[in-house]
Design a protein around this nucleic acid. Structure first.
Length: 403
DNA sequence: GCACCTTTGAAGCTG
DNA sequence: CAGCTTCAAAGGTGC
C-alpha cells in the first residue's frame, strides 16, 4: 500500500549493480575500498560508480533517477529531514534534479559548502544534512573544525554558530528504516518509533544478503557523496553536540537486567514494544528457523500475545536486551561478534543457525573480510556469486579463529 | 519543550 | 588498538 510506484524494491533501480561491479554493499567500513575512512580521502570513485547515482555531469542530471529518490517520494520526506524550524529538503544531490548540477559543481569545493544564508546551498537548495544553525550547541568546544582554521576564539565561535549543522550521512540501516518505516507504520498502525525500530531491526536481520547489500551500497555512496559535498566535514563536528544522553547506565543496566530480571526494564520495557509488532512483523522473514525458542527474555519479549511468533521474530527476541550486552561485552570483531549475534538470536537452538538463515550482511562481510582479502567484494562478479561464495563458506569460517 | 526510547552502522574518543 | 560513546531517523511518551 505504501509502496508507491515501484514494484520492485525501491532500491533496485538505484542499485542495479549494473553488470559491471557488484560491491556487496559497503559493508562495514573495513570492506569499503572506496573511501579511506582514515584519511577521509574520498578515493576518486569510479566514474561509473557515482555517476549513476549522483550524476555529476549537469547534462545527465535530469534523466538519472536519483539515488535516494525512492526515499523522497515514498514518504514525501527527504533522506535528511530537517528538524522543526529547519528546512526539510532532500539531499540535494539525492532528490534533486536540476539542482544537482550546481550542487555537484560545488561538491569538489575544497571547503565546506558555504553555509551561505544559513545552510542554504549555493544552489538555493538547502542540503538535507544541513540543519539550521547548531544544535543545542554547548558552550563550544573550541571548534575543532577539520579545516583547522586558526581564528580568534571569538570569531571561531561566531563562525561555529553560523556554521550549519551538517548531519552525518545515513548508514545502511538508517536508510532502510527510512524506507520501511512508513510501510511498517501502515501495516501496524504503530507510530512509536521505538517500536517501529525494533521491528525494523528484526526485519533488517531477516533481509537477504543482497537486500542488505543494497543498503550498504547505498549508504556507501551516500557517504561518498557526503564527503564530496563536505570534504572537511567530520563526524567529529557533531560529536558531543547533542545533549549528552544519560544512558550511561543503560548498557550496564540492561546487562544486569538480562542477567537478573529480564522483565524489569528501566523505563519502557521492551515488552511494551515487541508484542505490538507481532501482528505486523512481516512473516517474510521466515528464512529463520534457527533461533527458535530463545529461552530468554523472550519470555517477556515473546509476548504471550503472540504465541506463534514467526521465526524472524524469535530470531531476534534478544536483540533488545542482548544487543547492548553483546555490544558491551563482545568486540565487534570476527568471532566474538559473530558468535554474539548468533548467540543472541539462537544461542540455544540449532547448531549453526547461521547456515540456515541469511547471515546478516554485516556478519557476512565480516566473514568475507576474514576469509578474503579486502578485494573480495570486487572479486565477486555478481550478487549471486557473492551469495554463492558466502553460502559456500563453511561456518567455521564465520567463527574464524580471530587472528 | 526537550530528552528518552529503540534499532544498526559509522566514526570519534579514550585508555 | 580494543572498547566504548555518540550520532544519524523518527514519533510517541514522560517529565
Amino acid at each position: 500500500m505504501v509502496q508507491p510506484a515501484h514494484h520492485m524494491h525501491p532500491l533496485t533501480p538505484l542499485i542495479t549493480y549494473s553488470s559491471d561491479h557488484f560491491s556487496p554493499g559497503s559493508p562495514p567500513s573495513h570492506l569499503s575500498p572506496e573511501i579511506d575512512p582514515k584519511t577521509g580521502i574520498p578515493r576518486p570513485p569510479h566514474p561509473s560508480e557515482l555517476s549513476p547515482y549522483y550524476p555529476l555531469s549537469p547534462g545527465a542530471v535530469g534523466q538519472i533517477p536519483h539515488a535516494l529518490g525512492w526515499l523522497v517520494p515514498q514518504q514525501g520526506q527527504p533522506v535528511y529531514s530537517i528538524p522543526p524550524g529547519g528546512f526539510r529538503h532532500p539531499y540535494p544531490a539525492l532528490a534533486m534534479n536540476a539542482s544537482m548540477s550546481s550542487l555537484m559543481s560545488s561538491r569538489f569545493s575544497p571547503h565546506m559548502v558555504p553555509p551561505a544564508a544559513h545552510g542554504l546551498h549555493p544552489s538555493g537548495i538547502p542540503h538535507p544534512t544541513i540543519v539550521s544553525p547548531i544544535v543545542k550547541q554547548e558552550p563550544t568546544q573550541a571548534s575543532m573544525s577539520p579545516g583547522g582554521n586558526s581564528k580568534s576564539p571569538g570569531s571561531v565561535k561566531k563562525e561555529e554558530e553560523k556554521k550549519p549543522h551538517i548531519k552525518k550521512p545515513l548508514n545502511a540501516f538508517m536508510l532502510y528504516m527510512k524506507e520501511m518505516r512508513a510501510k511498517v507504520v501502515a501495516e501496524c498502525t504503530l507510530k512509536e518509533s521505538a517500536a517501529i525500530n525494533q521491528i525494523l531491526g528484526r526485519r533488517w536481520h531477516s533481509l537477504s544478503r543482497e537486500e542488505q547489500a543494497k543498503y550498504y551500497e547505498l549508504a556507501r555512496k551516500e557517504r561518498q557523496l557526503h564527503s564530496q559535498l563536505y570534504p572537511t566535514w567530520s563526524a567529529r563536528d557533531n560529536y558531543g553536540k547533542k545533549k549528552k544522553r544519560k544512558r550511561e547506565k543503560q548498557p550496564q543496566q540492561q546487562i544486569q537486567d538480562t542477567e537478573s530480571s529480564l522483565a524489569s526494564k528501566s523505563k519502557k520495557p521492551c515488552v511494551q514494544y515487541l508484542p505490538i509488532e507481532k501482528p505486523c512483523d512481516s512473516p517474510a522473514s521466515s528464512h529463520g528457523s534457527m533461533l527458535d525458542s530463545p529461552a530468554t527474555p523472550s519470555t517477556a519479549l515473546a509476548s504471550p500475545a503472540a504465541p506463534a511468533a514467526t521465526h524472524s521474530e524469535q530470531a531476534q527476541p534478544l536483540s533488545l536486551t542482548t544487543k547492548p550486552e553483546a555490544r558491551a561485552q563482545l568486540s565487534l570483531h570476527s568471532a566474538a561478534f559473530l558468535s554474539s549475534k548468533a548467540a543472541s538470536s539462537s544461542s540455544l537452538s540449532s547448531p549453526s543457525p547461521l547456515l540456515s538463515r541469511p547471515i546478516p550482511f554485516a556478519t557476512m562481510t565480516h566473514t568475507a573480510l576474514l576469509t578474503s582479502p579486502p578485494s573480495f567484494p570486487a572479486a565477486i562478479p555478481s550478487p549471486q556469486a557473492a551469495l554463492a561464495v558466502l553460502q559456500a563458506q563453511p561456518l567455521s569460517l564465520v567463527t574464524k579463529p580471530a587472528d
